[in-house]
Design a binder for these strands. Structure first.
Lengths: 350, 350
DNA sequence: CTGAAAGCGCTTACAG
DNA sequence: CTGAAAGCGCTTACAG
């Protein structure tokens, strides 16, 4: 190879034939060693392993995928707006960790939910690379047109927080109604009565469910829901901040604000600073998800933890084994974690 | 296919042979149409295209990659701590956008910088999947052992912010010394004299360069650097908050704090709240990078924008075309963006 | 402008 | 427990 022109011409790759020759076995035997199939004598296995090490052999995944129809790749589909979402960041991290344990790789694709040929695009990506599985996060996981088209795909598909679970899909979620109820109950128990709610996007099933749980708790406590305290948001820090501005400008402002995710809760916190409010003394704030950010910020946010670690392990396992598709969504237990952003309202103290 | 047991058995895939048969041409012609090679009669091309559409044919990327030695996949290597870093998030987004334009796919791999066989691991990932290129972000891009090993790889490799640029690598960066100088000059011009600096990790070239620039500006303004105001950080929100706590507890606290990236600057902002300081009235805060978060937060952060869009476009283009490796790093122009977190110090006003 | 054929580097029945 | 051979679905010289 010419030293002056590096990386221009590929070195001839070391193949399974080279290993077989050196170990004095057939390529079949090498293949069995590589794939950890048991039917190889220990002595033979050792000889093959030595050859592999000596030649620094790396099996070609493309060839392996082509021959076996197993690409060992999973695809994660997100919409472009997911950028900066700490929720998606955590999902991605969890998938990556689990994939690595299983010897799988992750391909990331951003797609535009509003694109007219979204379904074809996603399907094409899965078929072309022969993905072992596709993973959909909201809002893609509840995109009717996409889901309808994907019913007829061979690739197993997992969805986080689908609108409603469906046979043929691997669905994971937590009980968002209960989670919403639990968080509202927490604030109510603390003594709050004027509670603001920052909704997520209305086409987002999780957000609606959390809001429903909130209302249920309010009803149970016999506290009427003041609709002027319930504002829309977009699951972003910015939208939480905007909603917070509105709520805190009110003549009679809420003593607590519950946001449908923690990025928005962080935004509400930022808004509270503009009004020179202390958290939690003057205002309690709570959210959902438990992103790394919500744990790092100050004051640390009281949240309802979404069990993304457990959900992701289930998703990846089901995808990889492509085992019988669950009839219903797998629902994992959430957990209320009280940190520093919530306290009893000022009037209720002492 | 059994309707009751979905996705268990793969449908026979549509292949290039099916398309060729239907269009009454050879597979060679189909291949040429697929790859947009010019030497096909328009009429033939149309006939092939019709067949492709009619059969919903998706060329198998694995087969294509195997045959052509072009996988159309790029690999992004990050260390696990990168999670939650808004800098890495922005890089990932930029790569994804550029890849999609070019018809490439992105495989993400997290690796542990402290792993003893890091180099083998990275190399193996590149060789196995026959990646068209590998992308390294800090701290991997300046990891001596890894870089040394990667010199002898066939796969083209791009690095963000390497320690020092090297022939054989595609290196991109901005002028961090100048950037550090510019940001310090901004604060000095506003009238600040007691300026805190939150350093990044000491093995991080960018951080050191930014600090050097800071010192240069201080020297030029004849303001001695108070070492007790220069604290280490880890490029995270949390570490910025901790450093802020220390700086703001000082009997004579700084009137401005410059952090080596904007996640840390956001942390300093959080710390300032604990001390009931108003930003920018009581304290000016500035950072580097320009993450989406630094744009969304309140007050919006004054920062030095790292031109990641331009850097990434250059990286991907160079990787894909595998064109002559640059002798030196490609350096892209930074830009100081003044937003709401900086102002003249209280004493200097009026 | 287009065909027939070899080859990319694996896996996998089929034999033994 | 191991071999010889076909095949996965493409690309690419080589001819014409």
């Amino acid at each position: 190879m010419d030293e002056a022109a590096p990386r221009t011409r590929k070195r001839k790759a070391v193949t399974i034939y080279d290993v077989a020759k050196r170990a004095h076995v057939s390529i079949k035997t090498v293949s069995m060693v590589l794939n950890n199939l048991p039917a190889v004598k220990a002595e033979t296995r050792a000889r093959v392993q030595d050859a592999i090490d000596a030649l620094a052999y790396h099996p070609n995944q493309l060839a392996r995928g082509l021959a076996s129809h197993r690409s060992f790749m999973l695809g994660l589909f997100c919409d472009g707006n997911a950028i900066g979402s700490n929720y998606i960041a955590r999902i991605q991290m969890e998938i990556l960790k689990t994939c690595q344990k299983e010897g799988y790789h992750l391909v990331i694709e951003y797609v535009e939910p509003s694109s007219p040929n979204l379904a074809r695009q996603v399907q094409s990506l899965m078929v072309q690379s022969d993905l072992a599985g596709g993973i959909l996060t909201p809002p893609l996981s509840e995109h009717d047109g996409l889901i309808e088209a994907l019913k007829h795909t061979d690739t197993p598909i997992a969805r986080y927080s689908p609108e409603r679970s469906m046979p043929g899909f691997i669905d994971v979620d937590m009980d968002n109604v209960q989670a919403g109820y639990d968080m509202a109950a927490l604030l109510l128990s603390l003594g709050h009565r004027r509670i603001g709610f920052v909704h997520g996007e209305y086409d987002h099933a999780d957000a609606r469910a959390r809001f429903a749980g909130f209302r249920r708790a309010m009803a149970e406590w016999k506290v009427p829901v003041d609709e002027s305290l319930c504002l829309p948001g977009e699951f972003t820090y910015k939208s939480g901040m905007d909603a917070g501005d509105v709520l805190l400008s009110l003549p009679e402002r809420p003593t607590a604000i519950l946001a449908a995710n923690d990025d928005m809760a962080a935004g509400v916190l930022a808004a509270s600073l503009r009004f020179n409010l202390r958290v939690p003394e003057d205002l309690s704030i709570a959210g959902f998800d438990d992103s790394l950010f919500s744990q790092a910020m100050w004051p640390r946010l009281t949240i309802c933890r979404q069990p993304l670690t457990e959900m992701t392990e289930a998703v990846v396992a089901a995808l990889i084994r492509n085992e019988g598709v669950e009839p219903a969504a797998m629902v994992f237990p959430h957990k209320v974690i009280v940190r520093q952003s919530t306290a009893a309202p000022a009037e209720a103290r002492f």
